[in-house]
Design a protein around this nucleic acid. Structure first.
Lengths: 223, 223
DNA sequence: TCCAATCTTGGAACGGCATTCCAGATGTGT
DNA sequence: ACACATCTGGAATGCCGTTCCAAGATTGGA
């Protein structure tokens, strides 16, 4: 059930790290819905029982995978100004989610549950610490950091969803054109706004717009 | 597979609406993990095949349930100023998610996927239309609306998660005190920020802070 | 060096779930 | 009253997470 003192093992010994590593790789390659204990045991050339000795259940495995990737992503060196630091954190999360689309689902699920996990607090801390460097009134620190965090995770997730829908070998410009056209074809009665900004989304840079959103919130914070 | 012309039926006739209605009720009472086709067939006194005649699969059923609740929540009458209108939409979504915690998971999942569903666009439109009433440059409409939407869904979902963790019969003040204490007990090296604002979260009003976040973003938008 | 105790493994077995299949009931148009 | 499409319910299927357990390592002590 729990890990004990490490010892010498044969080279192919199983370990929590090796399992998490394999899980991440499978998540990235075959997708989250196809990460099953069957393919995991095949990949690791072992049985289900062996995996369950190192990991409590599938949820814990997914949590561990999420934490490993996020922790790596949040390893960032200071970039000078508080604003630049916040941009760096935001972009790091954006890139991580873009590279591992399953993170979007996973982080969203962790948020929909409890402060059980350690991932969400880590992200919140990472953002909040940099927000503190801005000189904002103490009373709005929580609100400001929350707003930033939700925007970052939400917008990055949305971007990942688009990328996932597009597929790894699709033409982005083509996709945007199609999406823009679809918006323009909406019912003018029900969707006047979406129609109106359809053109504006045809040609935009994902990262640029993402950072624009960050700056928009930062502006609000500084007032 | 598809619905055809309606006709007269015996009083207890099955229909997509009745199924969705039952699903929502079960989601609210027994929770999302326990909404299974077994309990659904028992509740409707029918068989699985009958349900599958009206609904393609479980995902579509959950989507339909989400859409029904969100559509009802977004039926709001104008409240005077654009700011008041935006507050109204935000609060309506907040309340809906608070009342139906499974919405948080569901909306998050819909965001993590594609523009396949009709729920997300509806929310986006509802917010964006009110943001348009503010006099902001056309070029930031998309960014501003996105930021608002992600904050609303994220913060409301977070709130629902807390409420869910607390349970229907828990003392909120007690919960906040415990959470605050837990934050203060974190490692000062790793979590200086979270520790610092632990006190500030002990006594706050959920809705008030939620709306403060909205105003923070609105301030940013207006600059 | 060998033994007993403990840690670790692999795979068979289990129960629950969404989904499919299909024989028949129910209603409709003629 | 007859053929036909619509709709129903429950049995059967297959996948998946999880549990169980007999056997294979590894270790520390005699």
């Amino acid at each position: 059930m729990t890990r004990v003192t490490p010892r010498t093992r044969r080279s192919e010994a199983l370990s929590r790290e090796r399992i998490v590593e394999a899980a991440i790789e499978l998540l990235d390659t075959v997708g989250e819905d196809r990460l099953t204990f069957k393919v995991l045991t095949e990949r690791l050339a072992t049985g289900a029982g062996a995996i369950y000795w190192h990991v409590a259940n599938k949820g814990e495995l997914l949590d561990a995978a999420t934490e490993a990737v996020i922790a790596a992503a949040l390893t960032i060196e200071p970039a000078g100004s508080p604003r630049a630091d916040i941009h760096a954190v935001a972009l790091a999360l954006f890139e991580a989610i873009d590279e591992h689309p399953w993170l979007a689902t996973q982080l969203a699920l962790q948020l929909s549950r409890s402060p059980s996990g350690t991932v969400t607090p880590r992200i919140f801390e990472s953002i909040g610490r940099r927000v503190s460097a801005l000189d904002v009134p103490e009373s709005t620190l929580f609100t400001a950091s929350s707003a930033l965090m939700h925007y970052i995770l939400g917008a990055a997730g949305q971007n990942a969803a688009n990328a996932r829908f597009l597929g790894p070998d699709g033409d982005r410009a083509e996709f945007l054109a199609a999406a823009s056209k679809a918006w323009e074809a909406l019912d003018p009665e029900e969707y006047p706004f979406t129609r109106a900004i359809a053109a504006q989304m045809r040609d935009h840079d994902d990262r640029e717009q993402f950072l624009a959103g960050i700056d928009l919130i930062l502006t609000g914070i500084r007032s």
